[in-house]
Computed example of a mutant assay.
Amino acid sequence: MADLSSFPITRRWPAKHPDRLQLYSFPTPNGVKVSIMLEETGLPYEVHAVNIGKDESWTAEFLSLNPNGKIPAILDPNGPDGKPLGLFESGAILLYLAEKTGKLLPADAAGRYEAIQWVMFQMGGIGPIFGQLGFFHKFAGAAYEDKRPRERYAKESARLIRVLETRLEGRDWIMGDDYTIADISMLGWVRNLIGFYGAGELVAYDELKNVPKWLERGLARPAVQRGLEIPPRG
């Protein structure tokens, strides 16, 4: 039985199954990347809801695992060399889980780095830009009299989604025939952009043909459907 007692986060979110990977998350576009990945791989895990609406990610216990105060984070009792490993940043977690399980990442070096570059594209572009558009279009920023920030992020979001549109021309998935962590990294963000954020019209989503089909294929996957609801919002 793994001993996770040295990790302060387990004091606030105790592990009922300390032999399983511990997931600390909330069903946001970043959070569901990891829950989808875990559902796709079948790796046993235990989930703990970290309610960001109640600022639980800023508690001392959570910050002890992720000093950046953002979900998701994991604690793997069976890390490298059999030692527990705590990890944050959703992109890093996707890579770690892909390498741990040998799934959803090309085995050849060239394919591996090609997939990783698209994960980085999501981390550095789609995630932060779509998120800012969501803020200025749906949340508090929508009340700002100056609409230039919203216009800036809408324009850049439209550009980024067309990069994805071009990549998907003639491909079912970002890497072609194979569904990978590159797809997992982006599905929740594109879904949020046109759904929860209601920004489809701002980025002219209806003009696209490849991205909507890709999103439909992704959302039809049972593991994706499960992962999008983990952990439940309560």
Rank of each mutant, 00 (worst) to 15 (best):
M1H: 14
P8A: 02
I9V: 14
R20P: 00
L23R: 12
N30S: 07
S35Y: 12
E40W: 02
G42D: 09
L43D: 04
V50M: 04
V50N: 01
V50C: 01
E56P: 07
S57M: 10
W58K: 15
N66K: 11
N68K: 08
N68Q: 12
G69V: 04
G69A: 04
K70L: 15
P72G: 02
P77C: 11
P80S: 05
K83C: 08
P84S: 11
G86T: 14
F88T: 06
S90I: 09
L94V: 03
L95C: 11
L97E: 05
R112M: 03
V119M: 02
F121K: 07
M123I: 12
P128C: 07
Q132R: 10
G134P: 04
F135A: 03
F135G: 00
F135D: 00
F139R: 11
A140Y: 14
A140W: 04
A142L: 08
Y144S: 12
D146F: 14
K147Q: 13
K147E: 09
R150L: 15
R150P: 05
A154M: 01
S157C: 07
A158L: 03
I161E: 08
T166P: 00
T166C: 05
R167M: 01
E169W: 00
G170W: 06
I174C: 08
M175Q: 13
D177M: 09
I184C: 12
I184P: 08
G188A: 03
R191Q: 14
G198N: 13
E201L: 05
L202I: 10
E207I: 07
N210R: 12
V211E: 04
V211C: 03
V211Y: 02
K213R: 11
L215Q: 10
P222G: 01
A223P: 04
Q225N: 03
R233H: 12
